[in-house]
Structures are given as structure tokens and as C-alpha cells.
Design a protein around this nucleic acid. Structure first.
Lengths: 203, 203
DNA sequence: AAAATTAATTAAACAACGTTTAATTATGGG
DNA sequence: CCCATAATTAAACGTTGTTTAATTAATTTT
């Protein structure tokens, strides 16, 4: 059969993205394959290649959705009011919770390396930057008379740090320490860094 | 032909490990394949499977060697004398230099997820722990009256942090900031964290 | 309404992959 | 010299990403 038009191009796209999310979420990145995705949505690989450039393209687009969800969850967690330091803590714990709730999907965002050109699209970079922007926004009120450049640097150092702790925990490379202590480690990192950054110890 | 015995089992093992190192170093983890390794050492895949359990086993053993080299380089960098904080800085810069000099090989250590059982061998975990032990040793003299548990936590938080910054930089996800600023970011992380950890600002 | 065009979908092919199997072939001891 | 042993390979299997040509349904044209 052909030209069934049971689903529009966008519908197929949506179905494929969801199928990948479910597959990766359950079996991990290495359990993913074009044929499995196609079978899951009731089509053949050929149809998949009509909608997506290739499998890497499909993965990048799923990663984009994951980043969007992460950004949303962090935005909800940080809220508007409250102690500035406490808001940064919430931001960190929110990041960790996201990674714990769906480790495979979260891991794929950072495990995946683009194949040919080696450069991620600009709209993708923008989603990453949005995450750092949230940290910078929380950092600004307690940064004293630090320059914007210093704040940007602090945001990246801090969030790289939180991210690294998550990665090592998820891949079992924290040296005997399990996943359960990740929030404690991140809290230690945030508290001590902020103490140093602001030059004052918090109550 | 068969039973050439041109090389002993251990020699083939050594040749294979070196071949993987060269392949991954040049083409990255995704450019690796059993057949390429076999061809590089002048044998067939079958011989490879006589010496190694499977390709994952081969990768794990290469990762072990990479971790050994990393540990060695860090040990040389930290030295014995000098300011305690400065030694921690050297440790961090040494880690970063290692990741920059051979990003693909370094990345494979943390990208690779064991397949079936999902658990890394004990001797592998021990190599990871040795790295944290170096950090703890440097941390101890400036830790005041912190407990060993607190020092262990600080070491993991700090090194998770340095590692995360490296990962984000190598995978191009630092949000517009390039690899060149990694040392600065790590220095920011270390200085501010240590300021908070010791409760005193350094000169 | 029938025919011709267009486009969606598939089946089949390709090369490469990890891994296993059976068949070879060189070496050692009798 | 032959036989048993063990090293090595060739070939096979199932799966992978991707491309190709063929098929088929819907749309347009006559």
C-alpha cells in the first residue's frame, strides 16, 4: 500500500519522537534502532527517512524536547520568591531530580555526538544557553558588584559542577558512593561555592 | 594458516589494546569496530574473541589503561611540596590537560556503559577511587577539623565539578563558551569552593 | 468516469557491524 | 612420520543505518 495518509507528516514526526522517548527511556540509548522506532509507530524505515534526515537527526530532535522539558521543570522549581541562595538550591535539586527520573533520556542529551559536521544547530545551542541563563538570573542578586562576565562564568562553573556529579553518579563512577548521595554532593558544591563567591557564610 | 604463534596471547592482547587506543584517539569511539582492530594488528576477528570476551571487555580494558595514565599524570602534577591550595589547582589543571590532549580516549572512559550486568568490575572501581584519594590527600591539610566523611564528600563534589566542566566543553554544550576557557572555569570552581570550604579567602 | 500524474509507502538491497561456528593449518610430542 | 592439540581463519547469522526501485493510493487532468 502507499499514500495511506493515515497520518500527516507532522503526526508521523510526533509519533516517532514519542516512540524514541519510550524506547530510550526503557532500554537506553544503545537499545535504539531505526527499525524498532518504525515498527513501534506501524511504519517502515523508509517512512522514517522521509521525515528525518537520518537517525542522528531524530536523536537531536528528541534531545531538544528533553532540554525543553528540563528547562520547564527548572523554571517551575525556581519560582519567583524566596531567598536567593535557596532558589539556586531548588534549581540544582530540580536538575538532579530530572536526571534521576529519566536517566537514559537525560544521558542521551550529553552522550550524543553529532556525526558529520560535528556542530550542533544554533537552535540547539540556544536551548542550552537558556538553562545557563536561569542560573545567571538567580546568581545576579547575590553577586555583589561582580561583572556580567564573572556571573556568566560562575553559572557555567556551577552548573558544570552539578552536571558532573550527576554524570558520575549515573554511570556508577563516584567511587563507591551511590546515587542516593547526589543531592548532598550537589548541595555541598553549591553552598561552598556560593560562600566563596559571595565572600560570606550563609546562616 | 593457523597456529602461527607469531605472537603470544599477551602480545596479541597488548597489540589490540594499542590498536584501539590509536583508532579511538583518531576517529573517536563511534569509529571503533572489532574488524578494524583485527585488521590493524594483522589478525581476524576470531583471534580477537579468543583473547577478549567481547568488544565491551576490550573497551573496559582500554579504559583501565587510560585511567592509569590519568592517575599517573595527576600524581606527577601534584608533586609533594608547595601550597596546599596550589597543589589542588595543579591537580585540576592536570585533569583538564589530560582531557584536552586526548579527548576521545578520555571521553570513552565515561561514555561507555557496560552492557549486560551493568556493573563495572571491582578493580575498575578501585582505579576510580584512587583518583578521588589523590584529591582527598590534598584536601586534608586545609580541611581544618572536618570529618573524613566530609572530606570524602568534598573531594567527590569538587572532582565531579571539574569533570562536568570538561564534559560540557568537549561536547560543545557550554553555551557558546569554547574549550579555551575550561581552565578558567575550573579555577573559578576550585577557588570559590575552597574559599567556602575552609571559610577563609586566599591571598 | 477514465486515464494520467503525483506522492506516500514499502520491500529489497547494500555494506558494515558483533558474535559464533566449523573448517583449516601449523606446531608439539609420541 | 603421524597424530593430537591448539591457533587461526573463513564463513555464516542476525542486526544495524541508509539508499534504491517498485508498488500503490490519492489527486489531477482529460
Amino acid at each position: 500500500m502507499a499514500r495511506r495518509s493515515d497520518h500527516s507528516r507532522d503526526e508521523i514526526r510526533e509519533m516517532a519522537l514519542s516512540a524514541v522517548e519510550e524506547l530510550v527511556s526503557k532500554k537506553g540509548y544503545e537499545g535504539l534502532s531505526a527499525r524498532k522506532v518504525a515498527a513501534a509507530i506501524g511504519y517502515t524505515v523508509g517512512t522514517l527517512y522521509l521525515v528525518f534526515e537520518n537517525l542522528d537527526d531524530l536523536v537531536v530532535q528528541v534531545n531538544a524536547r528533553t532540554l525543553d522539558r528540563l528547562n520547564l521543570q527548572m523554571m517551575e522549581a525556581v519560582g519567583e520568591i524566596g531567598d536567593d541562595r535557596q532558589r539556586l538550591m531548588s534549581l540544582g535539586q530540580s536538575y538532579i531530580r530530572f536526571a534521576e527520573e529519566d536517566p537514559h533520556l537525560w544521558e542521551m542529551v550529553f552522550k550524543h555526538r553529532v556525526p558529520r559536521n560535528g556542530q550542533l544547530p544554533a537552535w540547539y545551542q540556544e536551548k542550552v544557553s537558556r538553562m545557563f541563563a536561569q542560573v545567571e538570573r538567580c546568581l545576579k542578586p547575590i553577586a555583589g558588584h561582580k561583572t556580567p562576565g564573572e556571573i556568566a562564568q560562575a553559572a557555567r562553573a556551577l552548573w558544570g559542577g552539578v552536571h558532573g556529579i550527576c554524570i558520575l553518579a549515573v554511570t556508577g563512577k563516584l567511587g563507591g558512593v551511590g546515587v542516593e548521595s547526589v543531592p548532598d554532593l550537589a548541595e555541598s558544591l553549591l553552598i561552598n561555592y556560593l560562600d566563596g563567591f559571595t565572600g560570606s557564610r550563609n546562616p
